[in-house]
Amino acid sequence: MYEAVHAHPDGDATVARYARTAASYGFDGVVVRNHGDARTEYDAGRIREETGIDVVRGMEIRAEDPSQASGYVGNYRGDHTLLLVHGGTNAMNRFAVEQDRVDVLAHPMRDDGDVNHVLAKAAVENGVRLEFDLSRVCRLSGGGRVQALRGLTKLAELVDQFDVPYVVSVDPTSHLHLRAPRELAAVGETIGLGAKRIREGLAEWGRLADRNRERQSESFIEPGVRRGRYEEVDR
């Protein structure tokens, strides 16, 4: 299971610290999802060696409008394993689900954002994962949390109806915000999302990273076609 994290300077912990905490909590990997204007440097190989945590290079694209975001997607798709779009407005949500080069639409229900059946279908068509964002469930109480729960319930209904792919994250900006998978499953069970959905959503990050790494590897040509090893033919 994987967690997607904001590392320093986007958050209050380095990638190495996240990895160490994640390892002790029972995660298999972390996705670095720093916003495009606060990127970070780290040595993924070294961190993997020391903690056993798979560090996935990702980016969360935060843009004013879809045209700007489109430029960022083109720029960063090549050298990032996972590309997320910072959702939360209807325009950006719509943009993200209509781009098959985008992997994840992050926190679509935050702020003024909303998701409807049109966006859900588009997400299925383009393979864009919708994110169940548990940050406000775990770190807020009262009105803010009620709104967040309402959004999650609506998202869950759409995801079930159209079989939309999804991911789950607590969107941590500090290693102290991380919560272990079993704790998140218990929270999911309590708020009516179900423990199974939470586990699936946490595991989906890893599957997505594996798929993209394969696609970006040298031997990949197109789905179903790859450069293999062939016997030398004597002539």
Binding site: V137, L176, H177, A186
Partner: peptide, 21 residues
């Protein structure tokens, strides 16, 4: 499990962020 969920939602104590596992 309910207690576990409640523990996961303790985000801070006295203004300090808290990691709970």
């Amino acid at each position: 499990d309910a207690a576990r969920a409640a523990l996961a939602c303790v985000a801070s104590v006295d203004g300090h962020d808290l990691g709970v596992v």
